[in-house]
Design a protein around this nucleic acid. Structure first.
Lengths: 183, 183
DNA sequence: TCGCACATGTAACGCGTTACATGATTAC
DNA sequence: GTAATCATGTAACGCGTTACATGTGCGA
């Protein structure tokens, strides 16, 4: 049981979903802090089924395409809760941007500026995207009990990206000063 | 050539170092945004030597332990610069804490609060550590040209963690209100 | 009828971690 | 002499990605 498995169990607490649905949900709702690849998703669903933590609903009408609708079982809910109750592991991060910056003495100053300018641009776009997503989420009335938690994760993204933006501005300003002092 | 290889090349622009030195440097200076395990480090050094991007210095005096001192070659510097000039790839992140929060509707409210409280505590500690490290860095005069860049990476950590702390406070407050409204 | 979105899966690969293994030198 | 630190490496394993493979149903 990896985090991938728990992520899938968690998604199925929202309601019965197909693999494809989960895939879309992840892409739309959690891609900012969680992602799954196909190569993980489908084998993980198979394993969870085998463990009887999820079940395949009997296809309601005609076999509509090859679609399989999964539901979480009581045993599945139990496993999920056990995992949720454990404090989250502190992640080890690897930030390529900061690694390059750490070796910044070896880069031409204008190229480094370009890099940070690019990060700044992406960060601004991310903030905008997260904010609109947070707005739209409020409008949507389905799955009311999940709403506040989903908002919190979006708020996290907003806050962290705001800080990143601030840092980009600080750093660009600093780099500009540095270059001028060299002239 | 993976990021690990470039990280090692980068470290060797600071000066000639042994594998153990690099290991220590990473643990002391970049662990907040970059880490390497032994299982990567030594094979990577071997490969870089084979590619002649780094060389083993003739052991200066008596073979002091089994120590090998590596230096970057001109070809190595060239490879490093090519990598540094490319804009950093936007990383895919996986944040277990946010994933658990996303499924927060399935957790007892007080346990969730504990989780965030723990994050808050760790974040405060991280800020303090980064700030003192930034102070001490200024005092140290070796490797002057690297200093501003190292400070920028620390500042990044400080800014991001400050935002995280703010978010923790916001979220804890919000959760408390939520619980009271249920009563 | 043609293309796109839906829908599920497998195979290969590689990065990175963990655990194991070994031995030298220094400080107490 | 013995513990801690210095110092280098290997082996096994597993997670996760990428690319490949296949097929359905709907709308223009």
């Amino acid at each position: 049981m990896t985090n991938t498995h728990y992520a899938l169990l968690g998604m199925l607490t929202i309601g019965p979903l197909s693999g494809y649905d989960i895939r879309r949900l992840i892409a739309e709702s959690t891609q900012a802090f969680w992602s799954e690849s196909d190569g993980q998703l489908y084998p993980a669903l198979a394993k969870l089924t085998e463990l009887k933590l999820i079940t395949i609903k009997p296809t309601p009408k005609k076999s509509s395409r090859g679609k399989k609708i999964y539901s979480i079982t009581p045993a599945g809910r139990n496993e999920l809760k056990k995992w949720l109750n454990q404090p989250p592991a502190t992640a080890i991060v690897r930030n390529e941007m900061l690694l390059k910056l750490f070796f910044g003495a070896n880069i031409a100053p204008d190229i480094l500026r370009d890099h940070i300018e690019k990060v700044r641009y992406e960060t601004k776009a991310a903030i905008q995207q997260l904010k609109t997503k947070k707005q739209n989420l409020t409008a949507d009335e389905s799955e009311l009990k999940h709403l506040p938690f989903w908002q919190m994760t979006l708020q996290y993204g907003i806050r962290l990206n705001e800080a990143k933006l601030l840092w980009c501005d600080e750093t660009l300003k600093f780099l500009k000063q540095k270059e001028e002092s060299v002239k």
